[in-house]
């Protein structure tokens, strides 16, 4: 019964879409459902001479992972230090608050000017997208560590290093993982946008723009479905980790 409730709206949506496709009879505006499914069912066949769906998906995923990892490597330690040492917070806070509201795509011209057309520019855009949620959630996690936990291990002989490694890091890791989850979602959105930039010649974003230029809306929609599914898997996967490893967070009074 529950499953039925969950899938009834998507099924109705599909039905409506198919009816509209038949009624309009114009695949450039609404491609019929079966043509999209057909593409999704044959992901190994080359589309439009740009490689197949799987290859393009893997290219996009690789880019996201690279940009995301760089964002984590810089964002998590910086967040921990900013959250813990007020001097570092004072030094970086204003700068970060100024840069944070700038949408990742506003960086595109600068990225192109600095790194030229190609991978590095795309990684930079993904990095910008993932960096701020990771950083801000890490800071929030560190700031929410109860002072009494720190004091109690200080009376057991803990020094700064022990406090950081044995209290601050584990106590803020649920919040860090939330940051990673949000960051991964934004990184995934950024890769698609970055691949639509001039000079790109692979990835799902590129495939969408290229298919659009050839009026192949079935390929556009098929790519969009894949983007949606991967975004969902990414989010659910990290959420699973949160529940699996940080059960103490929700169960501690």
């Amino acid at each position: 019964m529950n499953i039925l409730k969950k899938i009834i709206m998507p099924l109705l949506g599909l039905l409506l879409w198919e009816l509209l496709a038949i009624w309009l009879n114009n695949p450039v505006i609404i491609p019929p459902v079966e043509s999209v499914i057909n593409i999704l069912m044959n992901p190994q066949t080359s589309v439009l001479g740009t490689g197949n769906l799987i290859e393009n998906t893997i290219v996009s995923i690789k880019r996201v992972i690279s940009g995301f990892i760089i964002a984590g490597i810089i964002g998590i330690p910086l967040g921990i230090f900013m959250g813990y040492f007020s001097t570092i917070m004072d030094l970086f806070d204003t700068l970060i608050e100024l840069l944070r509201p700038i949408p990742p795509l506003a960086w595109v011209p600068l990225a192109l000017a600095w790194f030229g057309i190609g991978e590095t520019s795309m990684l930079f855009i993904i990095f910008i997208g993932a960096f701020f949620p990771i950083l801000l959630n890490t800071i929030a996690g560190v700031k929410s560590v109860p002072k009494i936990l720190i004091e109690s291990i200080e009376t057991l002989g803990a020094k700064e290093k022990d406090i950081l490694l044995k209290i601050i890091l584990p106590a803020s890791s649920p919040s860090i993982l939330t940051g990673l989850r949000v960051g991964a979602g934004i990184a995934w959105m950024c890769v698609v946008a970055a691949e639509m930039l001039p000079g790109s010649n692979s990835g799902l974003g590129y495939l969408i723009m290229y298919a659009y230029s050839l009026s192949r809306m079935d390929i556009v929609v098929a790519s969009m479905v894949i983007i949606g599914m991967i975004g969902l898997i990414l989010d659910r996967g990290l959420k699973y980790l949160e529940n699996r490893y940080f059960k103490w967070k929700s169960l501690t009074k």
């Binding site: 009494i148 584990p170 106590a171």
Partner: peptide, 11 residues
């Protein structure tokens, strides 16, 4: 020191 508040590390 033993505190009045609970100070065990929940993880």
């Amino acid at each position: 020191m033993v505190f009045q508040q609970y100070t065990l590390l929940p993880w």
